[in-house]
Design a protein around this nucleic acid. Structure first.
Lengths: 256, 256
DNA sequence: CGGGGTTTTGAGACCGGTCAAACGCCGTGG
DNA sequence: CCACGGCGTTTGACCGGTCTCAAAACCCCG
């Protein structure tokens, strides 16, 4: 450990699309034990995980750097240990869709396992530390820890069940409800990560939020303004202060 | 095998919500080998799966019957072997969201693993045959087949990556694009299951499609009418005939 | 031949997108 | 220190699509 290595670790990059990109120049910083990773992923009921000697390497991303995964061979997963990211998936050439804003404990790269190729790109919105989980290691560990199989399913299922905003978009919620949902979710996640759940900084810009929530940038801004006018929140640039979390939660169910 | 057993197999149902429900009265009909299930799930690269003696029991659902999973203890997964279903998840009391229309090869119940409780309900839109996969068996098999771990991740990742309509909703596509996407996807799935990809029957009613696509029932109807008027498809009640699959596919990227 | 549920059609209102322009923040360079 | 310029943000006016509500047509089934 404590060695240095390049990030697009796929090896042969025959399939890389011709895009201007700025690979995350990355270095291993430290390493995590199996128990550490389990804790990150909130896998609690795994016996013997303390005894497991295997260690996972880390990768560092500086703010603005990107893990350009699209088309890369998928041979490992990533778990966010520190920092904030956004993941995007391209649809139309030039028109990409923001998919998630991963933070501590979130897993990246699941999408690529089926096809063997990653389908999305992750951009660091702040300095980030990621735990690398080579698929080979996962197979190995699965043999030693029979409960890991289910635990992984659990983690993936959670990621599926989560994404409340996504659910909201499908349920045909209005813009107010979606924005309220987004804010509530961000607050909860920040609180879960040890930050303040009342006052926090949105790391992404309005345009990203709009894209993520599937609405126009202007609408996001206006909605935030409305919520502020009603005294539910205070907005100052990217700093959000939540005054009435309960009311915000109730807004989530407002129909269009 | 060939025995009879009740479906809400969770055992203790302490947490069941007070809802009027109609349990799928279900019988085991036959069973599947491990290799059969792998084929269903399109897991190909698993050695020794032919030798695995384990067998999985089946459950039968008649059209209209429902697997009322909400709140049930989650101790098994389901794989669709035959028939068509719809899954819903309730948000508001009384207002539930259609989540997917599973068919052959699709997996049900992943959502429940994390919390231990199912969060959605499945309704049979036709007579169905489901393969039951107890989680205990999965753990056991995982020990005998090291590759299974990754394979399961692959299956789940595929389910994630799929759901193109869902993606479409988030990308802010217009109603035409979403309907076109829905039709194209249905056609592909039918084709993949050995049915005709040009002419097929939608098992769900307009209201379900609308809910799924996150739009008003009337809009679905009108959009289908427009597509028919343009000669791309022919609609006769629930029977769909696709005349111009290419044009339909192109429609998928039309913005709102 | 009813009766209920599903599908279809029509008219009007409202939300949210689009376009255009001004504002504020901030790093750069004179 | 201040002017400049780029980028993200904010505001306003207008337009179109989609929802809503209401009612009619249709189908399946008894």
């Amino acid at each position: 450990m404590h060695s240095t290595f390049p990030i697009p670790l796929g090896g042969h990059t025959a399939f890389t699309p011709p895009l201007p990109r700025q690979h995350g120049v990355t270095h291993a910083a430290s390493s995590s034990s199996f128990a550490n990773v389990c804790e990150l992923l909130r896998i609690c009921d795994l016996p013997d995980c303390e005894q497991e000697p295997h260690r996972f390497r880390h990768a560092l991303l500086h703010s603005g750097q990107s893990l350009h995964l699209i088309g890369q061979q998928c041979d490992q997963l990533f778990v966010v240990k520190t920092g904030f990211l956004k993941t995007t998936q391209m649809g139309e050439p030039g028109k990409q869709q923001v998919f998630s804003f991963p933070m501590r404990g979130d897993m990246l790269g699941i999408d690529g396992i089926a096809s063997g190729r990653h389908t999305l790109e992750a951009v660091a919105l702040s300095d980030c530390e990621l735990v690398l989980i080579p698929l080979d290691d996962l197979t190995l560990l699965g043999r030693r820890h029979p409960g890991l199989q289910l635990a992984m399913c659990s983690v993936m299922g959670r990621n599926l069940a989560r994404a409340p905003v996504l659910i909201g978009a499908r349920a045909g919620l209005g813009t107010r409800a979606r924005v309220a949902r987004f804010l509530t979710y961000q607050a909860e996640r920040h609180a879960a990560c040890g930050f303040s759940g009342n006052t926090f900084t949105l790391r992404m810009q309005r345009e990203d939020i709009a894209n993520y929530l599937c609405m126009a940038t202007e609408t996001v801004i206006r909605t935030l303004g409305m919520l502020e006018g009603e005294g539910l929140i205070a907005v100052n640039r990217r700093l959000i202060r939540i005054h009435d979390a309960a009311a915000l939660r109730n807004l989530q169910r407002d129909r269009r």
